[in-house]
Design a protein around this nucleic acid. Structure first.
Lengths: 217, 217
DNA sequence: CGTGCGCTTGACTTTTTTCAATAAAGGTGG
DNA sequence: CCACCTTTATTGAAAAAAGTCAAGCGCACG
């Protein structure tokens, strides 16, 4: 069970059987139920996680309670690595969005493995680089685009992830989507209806939209 | 000359003399004048840089020409590492803010070094983790705080970087500061005068401010 | 069958940007 | 050293974008 999750993760691509065994040996299984907090911003980080099943939301919280989602991770994706290498606290909150099962890798053991297996280090470097790249995209959106532009980018992103179909399925609630886009549900709702009136998108069901005017987005 | 720069960088801490020699052997010296572009977003990345002298601005650009600064790097700091490990393009622009001298490390050679020196990999992981952490802070500011709050955070950051003195020296222009804070010079100017009127800060010279009411920030 | 939560809509306020004009500062060449 | 020109900073008035508060609807779930 541990090994399947490990082998399914991009982080552990191209490793030897021995490496998989070593990783499995240091991994702990942890389970969380919907809404349960995995770690809080500022908690001391003694290891990182890989999602086995379920979904995990990584987010920042303002003093007034507004949240900004940084990522939503699904099966195979690692999270919480920052404090493993920078030696400090988690920089954001993590919460299970659904009943979830995780593999937990303690810091010290994992670092020992890395020291003997450069491929593992390179994989991890690749994961962090990709994440950095995603963050620059998020920063660009937040800073340089208004909410309609961010929504457009998101719709196109989901569409291309689904082989460029014009039907977009939102697998999260609109409230969560608002938080991903850095806004509030009311604003998102207004923009969705405005785009519909302008013939850019069509609502085809609860969480299903159809892109009518792709060029505009 | 190469070796001094290499030894002065946090990225290359705790390495052997042999490692320093290897690094120096693959490093190229590159010079840029003020305002010169080092790389553009989307350029293919075949290596990364370390600042020897001068300052480098890393930023995103909107189609309308507004810019968001992601970082300003000074001597010893590495930049442009993302495509080295994720194998693609630079995710942002880099421009010299002043006459600058850089060390350039080509991708393939650097990766070979990493494979034989786990400490180097761990150092790089640490650098990327720290950067990730900074980005989460930037995202939090942009998304969760209004401009006055971002300015306050910036002032406090500069202040603590200078041993918690109440005098803050801005070593960049206000236009650049506005771009760091994700706003425009006009807005920054207004907020600065408002904070002065409210007795939170005092202007003590061109680029010198004094924090009067630290608690408010 | 009621309660609650997610979503939408309206009216209003706040924040920020835009546009335009002006002032001050910095560097260059005569 | 000064005149000139470019860049940087400030200020005002108006517009636009997004957020707050409040109310109402509908659907799911107990």
């Amino acid at each position: 069970m541990k090994k399947e999750t490990i082998k399914a993760s991009p982080l552990f691509e191209n490793l030897s059987e021995q490496d998989y065994a070593n990783l499995a040996a240091i991994a702990h299984i942890k389970s969380y139920k919907r809404g349960e907090m995995i770690f809080a911003e500022g908690d001391e980080g003694t290891g990182f996680y890989i999602v086995g099943q379920g979904k995990v939301k990584i987010f920042k919280l303002s003093p007034e309670g507004k949240e900004q989602i940084l990522h939503i991770f699904s099966a195979g994706e690692p999270f919480g690595e920052v404090p493993v290498f920078s030696g400090h606290c988690y920089p954001a909150y993590a919460e299970a969005l659904a009943k979830a099962e995780m593999l937990y890798f303690p810091r010290a053991e994992f670092i020992s493995l890395i020291k003997n297996e450069p491929s593992l280090a390179l994989n991890m470097l690749s994961v962090l680089s990709l994440r950095l790249k995603r963050f620059t995209g998020l920063i660009e959106n937040l800073s340089l685009k208004e909410v309609p532009g961010r929504l457009a980018a998101y719709l196109l992103y989901v569409s291309t992830a689904n082989n460029d179909t014009d039907d977009v399925v939102l697998d999260i609630s609109k409230g969560q989507l608002a938080s991903i886009l850095g806004t509030i549900p009311e604003t998102l709702s207004r923009i969705l209806t405005r785009m519909t009136k302008e013939g850019i998108i069509e609502n085809e069901g609860k969480r299903l939209y159809h892109i009518t005017n792709r060029d505009y987005l």
